[in-house]
């Protein structure tokens, strides 16, 4: 009994540590400037003043659309191309398959530090800085997703695919019609991981996007907070970040993702790979 009470106590303390800062931030964004640093979350002077200020100063709605568009395009592309290459590596025979697989594994070990600058220069040379293309193209495919898909496809029974082939199905049809419905959990895992990573990235957008109307939401908020636009006022800063979080916590990731990581074998498989 005492033991389980202790457990609950620690778990609850942990929950406070993880959740309080967010609550404080949300409360702060509603409070007048002078009350923000107060530890107490309640205020009788709550207003949306800070939000109004943010909305008039920066195009955060547009930034949300940008982020959404970029993250969704990237995620879709990563899933589609990742599964295609993964399928080819797992189920098709062609020359150079082994070499390609090794190259993809090698790609996973290259840190961003090395490719960051040449990639930026490539964007400059292609003349696509300050466009959605520069945000989407460099992350259109990922070695990680290919490996995850390959591992999963290897676990599917070969008889299933053979049967479809004998029925005269094209490989494209086999992949998208037959295999996709069987790989929901893997697709969701890859999609969520990709979406999260793309959505949250700031370094790359900071490098390639200068045009305000094309900035992603996290980038715009960063610039709003460290650039002079908030005029050193805390309230608008917190309001801007609250808007950024409001999106994140409605993200299916918060609820679904830990569960998936926890339960789905898809993750255990790729875990083994990254080891």
């Amino acid at each position: 009994m005492i033991k389980s009470m202790m457990k609950m106590f620690f778990l609850f303390a942990g929950a406070v540590v993880f959740a309080y800062p967010f609550l404080w931030m949300i409360a702060g964004s509603l409070k007048p400037e002078l009350e923000i640093t107060n530890l107490w979350l309640w205020t009788s002077n709550a207003s949306f003043h800070n939000f109004r200020q943010v909305l008039t100063k920066i195009p955060i709605g547009r930034a949300f659309v940008n982020s959404m568009f970029v993250s969704l395009s990237t995620t879709m592309s990563v899933v589609v191309f990742g599964s295609m290459v993964g399928y080819a590596l797992a189920r098709l025979n062609f020359h150079g398959k082994k070499i390609l697989y090794t190259l993809i594994l090698f790609t996973m070990m290259i840190p961003f530090q090395i490719t960051m600058i040449p990639q930026y220069i490539l964007m400059v040379k292609l003349g696509i800085t300050d466009s959605y293309l520069s945000l989407i193209i460099p992350t259109m495919m990922s070695a990680f997703s290919i490996i995850v898909f390959r591992q999963f496809f290897l676990s599917l029974p070969q008889a299933l695919i053979d049967a479809a082939r004998i029925d005269g199905c094209s490989e494209v049809r086999i992949l998208f019609k037959l295999i996709y419905p069987l790989s929901r959990s893997t697709i969701i895992t890859v999609a969520l991981l990709t979406f999260m990573a793309t959505w949250n990235d700031v370094l790359w957008p900071l490098m390639v996007i200068r045009e305000r109307s094309l900035m992603t939401m996290p980038q715009l908020v960063t610039i709003f907070v460290i650039g002079g636009e908030a005029e050193a006022q805390l309230g608008p800063q917190l309001a801007a970040t609250t808007l950024l979080v409001a999106r994140a916590s409605s993200h299916p990731g918060v609820r679904v993702f830990p569960k998936i990581l926890h339960r789905q074998h898809g993750f255990k498989r790729h875990k083994r790979i990254t080891e």
Binding site: G14, A15, F18, A19, F22, M25, M196, W199, N200, V202, P218, V221, T222, V225, T241, L244, V245, A248, S249, H251, G253, V254, R255, F257, P258
Partner: peptide, 13 residues
Amino acid sequence: ALYFLPVVVSGVV
């Protein structure tokens, strides 16, 4: 889910 919240939120926040 609570412990996971900061993971999903962007580093900027």
